[in-house]
Design a protein around this nucleic acid. Structure first.
Lengths: 198, 198, 198, 198
DNA sequence: GATGAATGAGCATTCATTCAT
DNA sequence: AATGAATGAATGCTCATTCAT
C-alpha cells in the first residue's frame, strides 16, 4: 500500500531530524534560547517552518532533545578518557586538547545558555540538573588518584582538582565559541600547570 | 513650596537612571539580550514601563549605555592593578581575587551576551569591538615584564601569557554568574600556577 | 490477476466516499465547521489525509456534498409521512417519533451549524437557503388540513401550526445530539398536545 | 503620582471589559468557539487585538468569563420567576415570554456551543456541568406542584414536566438566534398547551 | 515626572492543501 | 489508489513603543 517503503521513510525522517538538530544547535548556541526564532532554525536547515513542526512538536521539544543529546555527548567525551593512551597526565592532556578543539563547543554553549537563561522551561532545567559536574568528577577520580600516586599530579583533594580544572575547561569552551574580542585560547600545557607537578 | 531647583531635579534624574541601569544589567545578564523584556526591567526597577521610556529612548539605547558603562568599568578594574601593593605577582594575585569575587560578573556576562548574540544591533557590536583584549594586554605588559625580570613569572612572550591568563579569568567570570551545576571556582593560587614560576 | 474491472473500481470508490462522508458528518456535527480539521475526518475514516483529497477536492467541497445529502435526506423524511399508516394525527405522531430517535440528528445538527456559522462559504449558504421550511410546510399542508377537518388537529392557520411544530422538532433534534446537561427529550405525546384537539 | 486617579482608571477598565465581553459573546454565539478568531472579537469591539490581551490573558480566559456570566444570568432569570405576578401558569407564561424575547439568546447559544463542541478546554466544560438542568428543576418544582394542585397544570411527575418544557424552551432559543431558514417561533400559548390543563 | 491604556509588528504554532513516490 | 513529507497562509499571543491624562 505504502508508496514508499517503511525503510525509505524512516531514513528520510532520520536525515531530516539530524539536519534540523544540527541547524538548531548552531542557532541556539549563537543567539541564545529566547533569541532563537523557529524561522531561523528552519532557514538554517533549509526547510519550511511548517516542516519543522512536522518533526518537533514545539520549540521546547526541540530544545529538550538537543539538551539530551548534548548531555549524552558530554558523558561520552568524558568516559572516553580511559581509552586514550599514556600516563594519567598524558590522558588528561589528550582529553583537554580534544575538548578545546571546538567541535563540541556548541553543545557546551547550549548547556551554558540553558543554565543561565531564566526563561527556559522547567523540564529542560531538570535535565540539566542531572548533568552535574559531580558525575564527571566521579568518572575522573581514579585517573587523578593514579596520577597523584605516580607523582604526576599535585597532591591534595583530587575532587577539588578535577572540579577546578573542568570548570576552567568548560569556561574556555563557552567563552571561545567565536574566538572574538581578542581572546586567545591558552595552550593546553599552560592549563595543565594548574594541576601537574612540574 | 518652592519647586526643586535645577540641580535637585538633575540629581533625581541621575538616581533614576542608575536605578534603572542597575536593574537592567541584572536582568540582561540572567536572561540574555533577547530574553530580557522591557517590562522585566521596569518591574525589577520598581517603576512603570512607561517611565522607562522617559529615561531611555529604547531597549537598544539602554543596552548601549550599559555596555559603555561595562567597558569603562572593565578598564577601571584593569588600570587599578598598579595601585595594588606588593610584587608584580602579588598585584596579579590581588587583582585576580577582585575579579573573581563576582561583583563585576554581571558586566562581563553582559559583554559576553553581546559578543555571542547575533541579534544585537550593529552599533553595540562596534562598541564591543573596541573592548579588545589588546588594550588590556598593553596595560598589563609592563607588570608582567617586571615580574619576568624578577623571576616570578614564567619566561616567554608576555603578551601571550597575559592573553591566556585574562581569557581564563574572563571565562570563569562568565561561567560562574550563578554558580550552578556544581562548577566550583578554582582557587586563585591554582590559576596563578599557569603563569608563575614555582 | 486480472485487474479489477471498471465497475468494481467504481464500487470501491463509492464505498470510500460513503465512508468519508460518514466520518465527516460525525465530526462536523460534534466540533462545528471551523472546529473540524481535515485530519480529524481522515483519522475518523481511518485513511490518510492525502487520500481525502483524492475523493474531495477541498474541505468546502466535502461540506457541500454533505449538506446536499442532508437536504435530500430531510426531504425524504418529510415526504415519507404520507406512507405512514393511520389518521393524520397518527401519521404525525409516527413521523415525530422517527425524527426524534436521533438517527437523523447529525444531519440536522450539520444544517444548524451551517446556518448559524458566519464563516461558511457563500455557496453552501445558498444551498441551505433552499432548504426552507416553506417547502416542508407545503408538503404537510394537506395532511394538517385533513386532520383539522377530522377534528383531530387544532383549528387556525395550518401553515403556522406546521411551522411552529416543525420548529420545535428541529430545535429538539439540534439540542439533543449529545443528551448532555440533563436535558430530557420530551415525550412525543406531550409535543402533540401543542397541535392536537384533546 | 498617578496621572489618572484610581477611580477613573477603574471605570475605563470596567467599560472596556464590558465592551469586549459584549462583542465576544456576539461573535462566539454566531461563529462557534473554534470559528471565532480573537481578531474578530477585537474588530467587533473596535479595539486592537493587543488591547484584548491587556484585558483577557487568552481566548480561554475570555470564554470562561463569558460562560460564568452566562450561567449567573441563567440562574437569575430562572429565580426571578417567583417575583412575577399571577397564578403559577401565568408566572410560567410570563417567564416563557421573557426567555423567548431573544435578549438572552446569545448566552444560551454560547452555552450550547460549549456543550456541543469537543475542542473546548476542560475547565470550561466543568463549569457547564454545574449548569445542570436539575438545578433549574429544583427551582421550579414548588411552582409546578402548586399549579397542579390548582388544576392548572397537567398531573404527573412535575420534574419530568419541567425538564421537558425547559428543554423545548432552550432548544427554541438556541435554534432561533437568527430567525433564519423560515423557522417561526411558536406562540407561547401553543407551548403552554404541552403542560397546561385545557 | 509618572502611569497604564493602546497599538501593531513579530513570533510560535496549526492546518488546508500539494506532490513525489 | 495511497501515503506522508512538504509548504505557506492564517491565527493566538507577546512585547517594544507611543500617548493621553
Amino acid at each position: 500500500m505504502a508508496p514508499l517503503n517503511e525503510e525509505q521513510l524512516h531514513q528520510i525522517r532520520d536525515e531530516r531530524r539530524d539536519q534540523i538538530m544540527g541547524a538548531a544547535i548552531k542557532v541556539f548556541a549563537h543567539r541564545g534560547i529566547a533569541g532563537t526564532k523557529m524561522s531561523m532554525i528552519a532557514a538554517e536547515a533549509g526547510i519550511s517552518h511548517g516542516l519543522l513542526y512536522h518533526y518537533f512538536k514545539s520549540k521546547e521539544e526541540l530544545l529538550t532533545k538537543l539538551v539530551e543529546e548534548a548531555m549524552a555527548g558530554a558523558e561520552d567525551a568524558i568516559s572516553s578518557i580511559y581509552r586514550l593512551p599514556g600516563t594519567p597526565l598524558e590522558k588528561i592532556r589528550a582529553f583537554s586538547m580534544e575538548m578545546l578543539d571546538e567541535s563540541g563547543a556548541p553543545y557546551f554553549m547550549l548547556i551554558h545558555q540553558v543554565r543561565t537563561s531564566d526563561g527556559v522551561p522547567e523540564k529542560v532545567k531538570e535535565l540539566i540538573a542531572h548533568y552535574n559536574m559531580d558525575r564527571f568528577i566521579e568518572y575522573m577520580l581514579p585517573l587523578f588518584v593514579e596520577g597523584q600516586q605516580a607523582g604526576e599530579i599535585l597532591p591534595g583533594d583530587p575532587a577539588e582538582l578535577i572540579s577546578a580544572y573542568l570548570s576552567v575547561l568548560s569556561a574556555l569552551m563557552v567563552l571561545n565559541v567565536q574566538a572574538l574580542g581578542g581572546y586567545r585560547m591558552p595552550k593546553v600545557d599552560m592549563l595543565l600547570r594548574m594541576i601537574a607537578c612540574l
